[in-house]
Design a protein around this nucleic acid. Sequence first.
DNA 1: CGATCTTACGGGATTCGTAAACATA
DNA 2: TATGTTTACGAATCCCGTAAGATCG
Lengths: 329, 329
Amino acid sequence: MPVLEAYSFIMRINIAPQQLAAFIVVAETCSFSEAAGRLAMSQPALSRLIRLIEDTLGTRLFDRDTRNVTLTPAGRELLPIAQRIVREFDSSFSDLARFVSGQRGRISIATLPSIAAVLLPGAIARFRAKRPDVDFHILDALSGTAQEAVLRGEAEIGLTAQPQPDRSLSFAPLLSDEFGVVCRRDDVLAQLGSTTWDVFASRPFIAMAAGTSVRAITDAAFLQIGLAVAPLLECSFLATARALVNSRLGITALPGLTVPLMAETGLVWRPLVSPSFRRPLGIIRRAGSSLTPAALEFIGYLHTEVRQREKETAGGSAIHSEASEAPTE
Amino acid sequence: MPVLEAYSFIMRINIAPQQLAAFIVVAETCSFSEAAGRLAMSQPALSRLIRLIEDTLGTRLFDRDTRNVTLTPAGRELLPIAQRIVREFDSSFSDLARFVSGQRGRISIATLPSIAAVLLPGAIARFRAKRPDVDFHILDALSGTAQEAVLRGEAEIGLTAQPQPDRSLSFAPLLSDEFGVVCRRDDVLAQLGSTTWDVFASRPFIAMAAGTSVRAITDAAFLQIGLAVAPLLECSFLATARALVNSRLGITALPGLTVPLMAETGLVWRPLVSPSFRRPLGIIRRAGSSLTPAALEFIGYLHTEVRQREKETAGGSAIHSEASEAPTE
DNA sequence: CGATCTTACGGGATTCGTAAACATA
DNA sequence: TATGTTTACGAATCCCGTAAGATCG
């Protein structure tokens, strides 16, 4: 009811943009038959179509005898209107088609800094090479913040650790991030190919702050192997952890993806085994809500990026190989 | 063919503005059933309508389960587009409806100065009281110029003497303008109620220039009564004729309508009889071309104006009575 | 279990193309 | 007479409303 009042004419005047386009062609050609040819329809059909518009508007649009077709004043009045509407219609739906096909859009991603630094740049670079008109908005945050951003709709997708099961959030695994020990290059551990978790029984452990996805795993690891590790040193930022390790205050356990953030500092990363722990990372999104076509396509690029990294590092993580190269510096 | 290329989407995307309006209502209410109520249609019909748009665009517009209806990104993209198109459509056709109903428009009239001065002001004043948004464009010119203006489309209608029969010009009589003699108030002729054409056998005749509608009639009149009148004095403008008569250089014969243009100059007008000549005045327009609705309505006002003048002057012309009042000054 | 969207189906309206009729230069 | 528009008519399509079905809270 409010609608019928708000738009008074649209509910009564039933004219499709295609009909207006047909009118425009007739007006431009001043001939029903030629216009019919251009419109790929029969001439009587076009004649009736125009008649229909005329009946709807209650006025003649063309003065026509068998030889001449000329716009009436009402027709001259309608012509620019029709042209404007058709142009608007066409350009709008052209834009929309580009959006729907993923050529245009804006992808907002809430992500852990490690993913933002390691996985995203390559994926975005390759994606933008194909879709230069898609913009990205990246919100790097800790796991919880990222989830909230997705839930509030501020971010379309989140790249984080697997969240607690939540009806309104869906999680799709992307990769699992192997934990390793991080120590100085001159540390005895750096000589080994891998290390076991009980190393932290004899070495000071630098823990990440509670609430981080890393801390959740390390807690679970120590619990599983029955090791009571006192968090003597605890920090929130990787840069801090890096500095602490570098200062010989202890060693830490971090997923492989985080290490490039500490690169070129003389630290190395070696897999932690017996058992090996992994941090499941993936894509979260609001359950039951569609993604933009561009984001949908971009997710494919993310998977490709992950596969490529796995292939490059041949079973280990890229950080592993980088850490291996470190001694050669 | 050029059209199909120029407007690439409009020929493939077949969406009526009403469908977009329906989409807007669903988007605003987030409910198919409530929207269906507002749109005065059944809910399944609305469901199918939305589905149709979705199929046409190749994307979902709403994420919907049995409890919630939410816009998808594509739907959010379409919403402002739909609103813009619907608004444009509605306001444009609202304007057009005002034009078609004669409430809005522009009437261009090519007219003889006498009609412009005597008939038009009253008709326009009464018309604009009812249609304040209709503009007038008046081109006052001699008969031939006015006809050309109408033929060229510069003027929509012409108010002139009856033209030579012309296929491309149609003439509708409006009034016939009685000829009379124009002389000084102190002239002996002013004492008489009327005068015969042979008065010009004994008095100098001031002729209007060849090509004027007045000259055409006076020539015909002299020819008919067999009077050879030498055009000793000839002029194009009524103001000149007025001055010549006022200077006692002669007298002239003019249709009643022209006299108000010479009013308050001490001249009087008396009917010329035996026989009485009349200048047929009317409305010319291009044959076979429609008029604007406003002009069509205005023509009715012109006829009313003429009838009113005839009633006021009770069988004579308004000029006649005004001339009669002159001696009382 | 209730509210809501979707699918199925029959009827009515609209629109198309072909063919014939019509009108003017 | 030739060109171009309108009318007539049968067929296909589209769209609506009613009724039944499915699904989630």
